[in-house]
Amino acid sequence: MSLNRKYIPIVVTILLFLVMFAAGSFRYTGFFSLQVLMNLLVDNAFLLVTAVGMSFVILSGGIDLSVGSVIALSTMISASLVQQLGWPPLVVIPLVLLMGAAFGSAMGAIIHYFKIQPFIVTLAGMFLARGLCYVISIDTITIDHPFYTAVAQTKIPLPGSSFLSISAVIALIVVAAAIFTAHYTRFGRNVYALGGNEQSALLMGLPVARTKVLVYTLSGFCSSLAGVVFTFYMLSGYGLHAVGFELDTIAAVVIGGTLLTGGVGYVLGTFFGVLIQGVIQTIISFEGTLSSWWTKIVIGLLLFVFILLQRVLTSGSPARK
């Protein structure tokens, strides 16, 4: 099969990741190791989980700005229930996930049934979730429950004396499940159809309403799962956790080659988009003299390049409006 135009963005993404990783390996000693690679996953597990949910939303032609706030709210609810009310984590975690999913489906329902732009509805969702954090508490709530600390410290050994964290494993499972969902289930294909042409999807008799609401439900679920993972990582609940995180997530999805207009892209691309962000951060920390804001500038630049690339690729295809 010849290299299709639709694969160009994802190929560019993977190549970019390899080139960046190779460049880092040549330049810095100690960069080229399995553990550095694994750390990309360990440090970005929550980004990966969120970005997977966001991929579905963007593939369906929408956007979800509430992800960062939902993460913060999840950490906050987990922390307050576990620490302040003494609930068992195994009750709290499913509850938090349910809350995230419910939050997402409410937004999805408003978007679909009242035909308001996803941008503005999820913006309201973002305000609401962030505000609810402060209703719970303005300060950080530290978590010292043994379950959380145990999960946080567990290292799963891998060959080559490297290791993964439980969070990273969760993230990998989410990615695998998402790839399956996107490509091998009706729901997944309906998401693509919806992003391709909503009107057609409707006329083809696809369940547009259900799919749309489910997409936001999924994103809400992923965000709250990312929030749970985040509590393992930070061991605290705080209303200022993950501020501006929605942008990182969207950037990861776009750099992963997904079209912001919907319908085209791969979860695998998002995976590499997250890794690219991780590599940029790693390189900057290895460099030492470069400051953290370069991450944002480089990501902004990559966004620009990818958006322009998308623009060029789509303008050539005949049937796209």
Partner: peptide
């Protein structure tokens, strides 16, 4: 009125894809 981003086969079958155990 089809979805330009999906493959030809999908456009014919979407909504009625052949599945086994929910897997397309």
């Amino acid at each position: 009125n089809l979805c330009p981003n999906l493959t030809v086969a999908e456009n014919i079958f979407i909504g009625r894809e052949p599945r086994r155990f929910g897997r397309i």
